[in-house]
């Protein structure tokens, strides 16, 4: 309803850490001068492996509406197989951005009228030395590159703060490597 709020919807699977990723971006946004930041997980009967959703709203002003995002500006997909299981672009504003963790290029996806970015986050994270399947920090690098909203250094700092004591450097490196290998396409 307000036009000063950037709405970002995250699609992942239970256990993938989409909530942590959204929280890291929320912290980086707040540090970057966005005084209004709200991250609201959608709670259902989630379990490991099942599709989960998180809403992240970012604004320079305080956000009062905590209801789930219905018309996102941007969608992040932590697992490209979700694209086949559900309409990840539901409600996405025309010209909106879809960022997908996928080894395939943006041209391999069909979202008419939308911008598409892909990155092989799974491989980048493994190259950075993280255990197989940890993608919630790498995807932040793709977000930094494709969205152009927050700079990579601030996001890397937020990743290191969140993962203090739990491989902070490798998690930040996964994001930086993904940042360098994000492909963009689709109609702009």
């Amino acid at each position: 309803m307000r036009d000063d709020i950037i709405e970002i919807r995250w699609h992942g699977r239970g256990g993938q850490g989409a909530i942590t990723a959204a929280k890291i971006v929320a912290n980086a946004a707040f540090t970057s001068g966005y005084g209004g930041v709200v991250m609201a997980p959608t709670f259902g009967t989630e379990r490991r492996g099942a599709p989960v959703l998180t809403s992240l709203k970012i604004s320079k002003n305080k956000i009062y509406d905590l209801s789930p995002i219905t018309e996102p500006d941007m969608v992040l997909v932590l697992d490209h197989l979700l694209v086949e299981e559900m309409d990840v672009a539901a409600g996405l504003k025309p010209g909106g951005l879809i960022i997908i963790n996928s080894p395939r290029p943006p041209e391999a996806f069909d979202f008419p009228g939308m911008k598409i970015a892909t990155a092989d986050v799974t491989t980048m994270a493994a190259n950075a030395g993280l255990p197989t399947g940890i993608v919630n920090t790498g995807i932040i690098g793709a977000f930094a590159k494709a969205a152009g909203l927050l700079d990579m250094d601030t996001l890397a700092g937020a990743i290191e703060a969140e993962f203090a004591g739990k491989n902070p450097e490798k998690n930040a490196e996964a994001a930086r490597m993904t940042h360098a290998h994000t492909l963009t396409g689709g109609s702009a």
């Binding site: 929280k23 929320a26 707040f30 005084g35 930041v37 709200v38 991250m39 609201a40 997980p41 709670f43 956000i63 905590l66």
Partner: peptide, 9 residues
């Protein structure tokens, strides 16, 4: 949930 599980500054 609306407040208990939502993150904000």
């Amino acid at each position: 949930y609306i407040l208990s599980h939502t993150y904000m500054p």
